[in-house]
Amino acid sequence: MRVGVVTFPGSLDDSSALRAIRVAGGIPVPLFHASDDLKEVQAVVLPGGFSYGDYLRCGAISRFAPIMSSIIIAAEHGFPVLGICNGFQILCESHLLPGALTRNQGLHFVCTDQPLIVENNSTPWTSGYTKGDRLVIPIKNGEGSFQASTETLAELESEGRIVLRYTESNPNGSKNDIAGITNARGNVVGVMPHPEQAIESLTGPSEDGLTFFTSILHSMVGR
């Protein structure tokens, strides 16, 4: 099972995401922003970082990278895409996910081990979790405050499209404590926390994030 990870200029967590795919048992495939070649991967991860230096708005310039034209078309046909942190911002800028991520309330860059609740385990990226699972996964962002119109929030809530919610505390002022969402079809998921940084107890606060990567492998095998 080949899972791609896109490197944009300024990506930081691409190597961690590739590693997480390998640890989960998949074949990690590096993809490059300047090419539109998806190299026959069966799913793709947009990693965290500061693509294009976060110039203009986070993810705004990456959204027009050649690789994104291929990913947007594929995603509209059900291809699984996971956006982590900056990847989530890119998915919102691409309009593959609704809403936007804005400057954290309080203006601080927040770097902490964050308690989360799994709200939706029907996506290919979260199928290994149980609804209501409590996770601890690092967050590290300056612009992670999820904002959307009242109508969009109501739609996300009523359709069960909130994937992860912050619990105990809301680190950045996100509406409805939203830490991750999915599109209507369920194949595109964006999360602000970094599951690729919580796959081994040696280097992370938990192994809670690994299930994102084992989930996608199991989901694709089952197809």
């Binding site: 309330q105 203006l107 002022g173």
Partner: peptide
């Protein structure tokens, strides 16, 4: 400009 309903923490800090 940010829409009026969107929180502007930078403006608040100023």
């Amino acid at each position: 400009m940010l829409k009026p309903e969107i929180l502007d923490p930078q403006g608040q800090a100023v």
